[in-house]
Design a binder for these strands. Structure first.
Lengths: 226, 226
DNA sequence: TAGATTGTTAATCGATTAACAATC
DNA sequence: TAGATTGTTAATCGATTAACAATC
């Protein structure tokens, strides 16, 4: 099998928060804050202090009792845990609007995610450039990634072709996929997938606009407001 | 207060799955499948059958014991629960690459999310068109939404201005925000926020590529492989 | 030392899943 | 009726949070 499996022990929500901590710590560093306690993290971000400490505890000891955490040290160690202290090469499949927006997204480079190639199956696009990257024929994915050795692939294609694209990514030795297509990708164990679904997000928002399940939490005239 | 509070009873993960069920049911409908059982849903999507039934149970009764669920009826009822059976007007703030990709995203219209206005603070962009929508001055947000009455706002601006944009959205009577900026928005109770963070997703993928916590799950030579 | 704050254990909370009586 | 499958209750699982001994 191309991708090894993980012995899951760190909860996924913890990993998600780690990325947030990094953002927060980065801001603190810019403000020249040298030390921070978990209580102060809670005050400033709303994240429970115990959770902050627990999240970190999966990876070792980071603070000094009675003192707190050294901001820049913590920053570096979390970046290291998430492997974003070193360049991560990324491939994007789909040179449409979304693919284009992603390639042009400045945040990627800032966090050492380096988009090294873009692929598409549209002959009108192949050979043209997206920003400074040539758009390659998707059929050359395996060949080209044998060189580039990217390990993360982004699927930014329409749903009907997403599964086929995922299969090709796996064949090209990609073990981690960020999927923007509105479809469930079937992949072998050991492949990590994260899905981003705009429609799902909007649907959740939309639900909360419904009047049915809304109630004023304030004064209830003569009934019991639960 | 502009936005009323919710009496939370439906778990958020349930709402998220509801959007997925919709996608799945849509596919079934296209394949002319009329009835489906929760066991078959599990077989085809991997979602636990009991969970499927439990998710639905928050909203009433949808199936017939011994028979299953009527695909198109279930489809309609879930769409109704999520309020995406009717037009939802959406405002986008930020006419950059991401805003542009979102306005041009065909899935939005398909699901009755109608982008009715785009705003930006860049004078070079104001007055120009993004697809078929004029880009308005962000300072006119309140005035213009008094007309348009959109209730969902999408924040597609850089992090440093995201909070200010969110505040302006709230002032313009928007109670639900989809935030693409890599920052935590502080909003009053009753406002619903969903965050989409590409960096967070990539960081979680990146973590899983690390060798430290990876192990082969295959044959273990003489130890116990758990 | 006294005060502060950590890392971790134990308690709580909530979500997932198994089991089953009700019912088509 | 017998078989199938629902909706729901109870059991399990896992994540969040409170509490506290250890320690700077």
């Amino acid at each position: 099998m191309a991708c090894s499996s993980t012995t899951v022990k760190v909860p996924v929500p913890t990993l998600e928060r780690l990325a947030n901590y990094l953002r927060f710590l980065h801001n603190l560093e810019q403000d020249r804050v040298e030390t921070i306690s978990s209580a102060e993290v809670e005050r400033q971000t709303g994240i429970n202090a115990a959770q902050f400490r627990k999240d970190l505890s999966y990876f070792g000891e980071f603070g000094k009792p009675g003192v707190g955490y050294n901001v820049s040290e913590l920053n570096q160690r979390i970046a290291r845990i998430l492997q974003i202290d070193q360049e991560q090469r990324v491939i994007i499949v789909g040179a449409g609007n979304l693919g284009s927006a992603l390639v042009g997204y400045p945040g990627l480079k800032e966090h050492k995610f380096n988009v090294v190639a873009v692929f598409d199956n549209n002959y009108a696009k192949i050979g043209r450039y997206l920003w400074n990257l040539e758009i390659y024929d998707i059929s050359r994915l395996q060949e080209i990634n044998a060189e580039l050795r990217a390990r993360i692939g982004i699927v930014a294609v329409p749903a009907p072709v997403a599964q086929s694209v995922a299969d090709q990514l796996l064949a090209a030795n990609i073990c981690a996929i960020l999927n923007f297509a509105p479809t469930v990708l079937r992949v072998p164990d050991g492949t990590v997938i994260r899905n981003v679904s705009f429609m799902q997000e909007l649907a959740v928002l939309s639900y909360h606009l419904s009047a049915d399940h809304l109630e004023d939490v304030g004064v209830s005239v003569d009934g019991i407001s639960e």
